[in-house]
Computed example of a mutant assay.
Amino acid sequence: MANPPVRSISLPSREHPCSVRIEALLNHLKSFQFSPSAPYESEIIQSSLAGLAELYNCVEEFMNSPSMQQALTTAKHAAGKLVEQALEGSITLLDSCNMAREILMTMKEHVQTLQSALRRKGRGRDSSIESTIHAYLSFRKKAKKDIAKCLGGLKRMEIANNVTNASSPPLDLSQDLLNIVKILGETSDITISVFWSLLKFLSLPTSSATKAKGWSLISKLVRTRLVPFEKEESKIVNLAANIDISLQTLLGNVQSNEVKVAQKMLETLNLSSEGLVAGLDCMFRCLVQNRVSLLNILTR
């Protein structure tokens, strides 16, 4: 399934100054949409998470500005319905963010264990590589199932958002409230898109076609003695999925060149995981703060 579509952004020019930055960030994040030829690259996802965190900070400032607070107070009943909708979706986003963060941290632990085992193998010591590989692949299999459930939740949220976006807003909403509705809707849409891409990066299935491509890539890396791995990396459809393939080649057939390929891939994945976890930590705090602000609107 393709990434959820993100609509073009265009807010009225006379809006609160913060809305100009929000519009720029939304359009910037939209430009990160992944092309079919190079989908789900970790660096792009990391940049998307950083931009998303900045967007949430701007939305927070926008919602807490005096003019917006006055608009929310004046139309408390209408605002309450809007906030309740946003709160419902916030749970799905928090769950998605937390799951991705936990999977990445567990993956990082497995990767470091694998790296240690492969280093010991390189020194000629018995490292029980096969049991370590089996543990990693078992984790990956379970993680893919968990991510599939999470993607289902994001898809349901996307459908609900589309229904809301297609319906006409109440006629009695002020321009300020209409702007809040638009900003919250666009922010929700782009968050779904970024999280969707991250989760797919972590869970792309290893189909027979992908596996064949992965084997071809691994063979090429071995033949070229790993000289330009960084250049070859851009050709990898999905790094995590290709590591699965690389590790499977080592089961019962550990060769020095194949160990070097796996070590290089694991090193890249380890570094990518660090950046992604840092981005998700920041995003989780932003989502919690956003939920607190929405709850404050309902309870004041």
Rank of each mutant, 00 (worst) to 15 (best):
T106M: 09
F195Q: 15
H16G: 00
Y40V: 07
H28R: 14
K220H: 14
E232G: 07
R291P: 06
F32W: 08
T113E: 15
A143P: 01
K211V: 09
N27W: 01
P4Q: 00
V59F: 03
V261H: 03
Q33A: 12
S37I: 11
T191N: 07
A209N: 11
L93R: 04
L151I: 06
K76N: 08
S67K: 01
T74R: 12
E233M: 05
S293N: 14
E54H: 01
I103N: 02
D95F: 03
V292S: 06
S47A: 13
M99E: 08
G185Y: 02
K231N: 08
G122R: 00
S128L: 10
E61F: 05
E43H: 02
T73Q: 04
R156Y: 14
A75G: 05
N238S: 03
L72Q: 06
R291L: 06
K81W: 11
G214V: 04
S188T: 15
K200D: 12
G252K: 04
S48G: 12
T224D: 02
V111Y: 10
E109T: 11
L52H: 00
L55D: 00
L247K: 03
F34I: 09
S13D: 14
G80M: 09
D95G: 11
L55E: 06
N161F: 12
L226C: 07
R120N: 04
P4S: 05
K211C: 01
P39N: 10
G185W: 00
Q289C: 07
D189Y: 09
E233G: 04
S256E: 03
S174F: 05
S42Q: 04
A71V: 07
S8T: 14
R119P: 06
Q263I: 05
T206K: 10
T74E: 13
K231S: 12
E84D: 14
A262Q: 10
S65I: 02
I159M: 15
P205C: 00
R7S: 13
S35H: 13
R285Y: 15
F195M: 15
G80D: 13
S10Q: 13
L266F: 03
A50P: 03
Y56E: 10
L298Q: 09
P36L: 00
L198T: 03
L199T: 09
N253G: 02
G185E: 14
S246F: 02
A241Q: 07
N270G: 02
M105Y: 11
D281V: 08
I297C: 06
A212N: 12
I218F: 05
E23P: 01
T132M: 00
T224C: 07
I44L: 04
L280I: 01
L94M: 14
D126Q: 10
E61H: 05
L294Y: 04
R300A: 09
M68A: 04
S8E: 15
V111K: 09
H16Q: 08
E274S: 14
P169N: 07
G124R: 00
E186M: 15
R300Y: 00
Q263W: 08
P5R: 06
I44V: 11
S246N: 00
T268E: 12
I9F: 08
S116N: 12
M63E: 08
S116A: 11
N98M: 11
I190L: 11
S197I: 00
